[in-house]
């Protein structure tokens, strides 16, 4: 069976669909959003992260490294390091951590099934998120089918940047699709997300036709100065109204991910951005609600 790469399984997840859920985060994403709060989700391969605040300088990692880990220098990414994980396994504090675990759908679903009782009591289930879960189509489909077989309700949180056929198949299996819209303007989309929005919008149309808005929830990250202008909000509202999509989760930008960038040696392009205030969020909500959309802040 196709195995996949998962970087986190978060239990008692309460923001990615109804009820009490477990969210499986797939590693690898075709997008490169400036505001990404899970930068470790982007690369489609395992990575070593290093938390210097947890390091006690015991030297276990250098001793364990079969390669040439020089002194206390950290290494990550393919090239210098073979990602064998020896340094992570021996790290007493967890300062070195391997991000990304290869799992089969069966292994993943056994993990996800652990909270079955909570799903059943709360009307919750499992959410496949990422990264971009559709970037690992066989693994995702097999995992979805495995959940269906085990009687677990599912949701898929997608950027929509995916092969339309895969999307169709996923849409057929998943109970709920959480579909992100970042920007309606293609130029801005290319700039801040790294790709054109045309396939994403086409896919959304296709999906809306196919599902008629049922079990389809749009999600809009609200990023100050990037996509919170009235024009974009109105355009999003209009688009959803046209497609008959009645539900939207507004996800205000937060800084929770900023601390992760240095761990991965990545540049945070929005390091100075202030999260939107409650008035800004309220205004965005009002504007979107004018289009007859039920808007919820947070998932």
């Amino acid at each position: 069976m196709a195995s996949g790469l998962v970087y986190d399984i978060q239990r008692f997840s309460v923001h990615d669909g109804p009820g009490i859920r477990t969210t499986a985060f797939f590693k690898g994403c075709p997008l490169d959003c400036w505001w990404c709060h899970n930068p470790e989700s982007i690369a489609p391969y395992r990575e070593v992260i290093f938390r210097s605040d947890k390091c006690i300088g015991c030297g276990a990692c250098t001793d364990a490294c079969p390669g040439e880990l020089p002194g206390d220098e950290r290494l990550s990414g393919p090239g210098e390091c073979h990602l064998c994980g020896a340094c992570c396994d021996c790290c007493p504090t967890g300062a070195r951590e391997m991000v990304g675990e290869k799992m089969t759908p069966g292994e993943l679903c056994s993990e996800l099934e652990k909270d079955r009782v909570f799903y059943e009591q709360s009307g919750g289930g499992v959410t496949f998120s990422g990264g971009e879960p559709l970037a690992q189509p066989e693994f995702l489909l097999a995992s979805l089918r495995e959940c269906v077989r085990r009687g677990i309700r599912t949701a898929v949180d997608t950027s929509g940047c995916a092969d339309p056929d895969v999307l169709d198949q996923v849409a057929d299996e998943a109970d709920i699709l959480l579909y992100d819209i970042k920007h309606t303007d293609d130029r801005a989309h290319r700039k801040y997300v790294g790709v054109s929005n045309s396939q994403i919008l086409d896919n959304l149309q296709r999906l809306a036709r196919r599902r008629g808005g049922g079990g389809l929830i749009a999600r809009l990250p609200l990023i100050p100065g990037i996509n919170d202008d009235p024009e974009n909000l109105s355009a999003v509202g209009q688009l959803l109204a046209d497609l008959g999509i009645r539900r939207l989760h507004l996800l205000p930008y937060h800084r929770a991910g900023t601390e992760k960038y240095p761990l991965l040696d990545k540049q945070n392009r929005l390091s100075n951005l202030t999260p939107p205030g409650s008035e800004d969020i309220g205004a965005a909500k009002d504007r979107l609600q004018k289009y007859g959309i039920c808007v919820r802040t947070g998932g």
Partner: peptide
Amino acid sequence: ESGLRRLAALIRSYFLL
């Protein structure tokens, strides 16, 4: 409301077990 429902679900689940 959803917070209260979650709390209730946590409790009911624990008691089912």
